[in-house]
Amino acid sequence: MDALSALIQHASPKANLFFSGNLCGSSESDSQGGQLHLLKSGELNVYETGGSKHVLTEPTLIFYPKGRSHKIQSQSLQGCDLVCATVTFQDSPLSRAMPEMVVIPLSQLTHLEAVLTLLFDEAFSERYGHVASVAHLLDLLLILLIRHLVAEKVCEAGVLAALSHPRLASSLEVMHNQMDEPWTIETLAQKAGMSRARFAAVFQQTLGQPPLTYLTEVRLLKAQQLLLAGQPIKSVALEVGYSGSVAFTRAFSRCFGTTPAQWLATLQA
């Protein structure tokens, strides 16, 4: 599995449609959870907390991956045609690396034209099953959008930036796909085809943390998902690269301030 696919699998991005149609007037959103807006036609003003304003006069994608309080308002009495969805991510390196906001005219997303055309067609139809089909198309759009952010180097730092670096991407791929291996900076540098010192420096510069710190984060965030899925602590420890439950519990406690068992008990209370 390539690095981006592994990151997406870990993050499990999910979009849920909450509006499709003509917006005549305005709609406000709080900062809870991500949101995706697709302007199909018309003109739209987007106001953010703090006074920022975006004036959209052509079909445009507006994406708040981490959520942000904002208001959208049609510029004319004729309104504008919109598709809006909530977006959720599992806590993961990918979700943590997403930008605060993405605004892209659809004219710049020609490689997504087929998906967008089908999505708009389904969203504004009354055909049987259109709600289910839109849900799947939104999930696909999310994945393709993330790939676009990597390909176009929209993010200058973090794991999305590292994915566009051919050598760092190789090390990320093995970290996410073989996290049970006893990786060291030396072996990761070999996978990247770089010297130990060069690899450590470039990794730190791009992702903002040392390679083994990132690897620990990957392992423990994945461990949380496995624990929530009902796997025993011992098997989770081995799956994410620890020698046993004692070493795993120690690392988990250092990172989250609580043991795996206490963390689960809190969530299930």
Rank of each mutant, 00 (worst) to 15 (best):
G230V: 15
L17N: 09
Y64S: 01
S253N: 10
Q209I: 09
R96H: 14
T249K: 11
S170T: 12
F18Q: 03
T110N: 10
R254P: 01
S20Y: 06
F124L: 15
E48F: 13
P211Y: 08
T259C: 03
L23H: 03
R68K: 11
E239A: 15
E152F: 11
P232E: 04
E156P: 01
A6I: 09
T110E: 04
M179W: 14
L163N: 02
L17C: 07
D2N: 14
P210D: 11
V55T: 12
T258Y: 00
L4P: 06
R196D: 10
A162L: 06
S52D: 13
I8W: 06
A135D: 11
F199V: 04
L220D: 13
L38I: 15
I185E: 13
T206Q: 09
A135H: 13
Q90T: 01
V240L: 08
D81V: 09
A192H: 00
S5E: 12
W183I: 07
Q224I: 13
L188H: 00
D91I: 02
A247R: 10
R219G: 05
V83P: 00
E239G: 04
E126R: 11
L17M: 14
L36Y: 00
C255T: 14
C155Y: 04
A169V: 07
V174N: 10
W263K: 01
H176D: 09
W183P: 01
V218S: 06
A162F: 10
K53V: 15
H37L: 06
R68E: 05
S5T: 15
A189W: 02
V159P: 03
A11Y: 01
L207H: 05
V159G: 02
L23S: 04
F124P: 07
F256V: 04
A247W: 05
R254Y: 09
S235K: 15
A151G: 00
V55N: 07
S95Q: 10
L4M: 11
Q209L: 08
H136M: 05
E173A: 13
T57G: 14
A189H: 00
T266V: 05
F203G: 07
P105R: 02
F199H: 07
K234R: 12
G129N: 06
E113K: 10
I143V: 15
A200R: 11
V46S: 05
Q225H: 13
G158E: 10
P211Q: 04
S76T: 15
F256E: 02
S170I: 06
V240Y: 08
T266N: 06
A229Q: 13
V240F: 02
K14N: 08
A229K: 11
Q209G: 06
S69Y: 00
N16T: 12
A6S: 15
V154L: 10
L137V: 09
S133M: 14
N177D: 15
S125V: 13
F19H: 11
P260Y: 00
F248P: 03
Q178A: 14
S171L: 05
A169K: 15
C84H: 03
A6H: 08
H136E: 14
G42V: 15
L226N: 03
T266R: 01
P105Q: 12
D121Q: 08
K66Q: 15
G33W: 02
V46H: 02
C84R: 03
R254W: 08
S195M: 14
G241M: 04
P65Q: 09
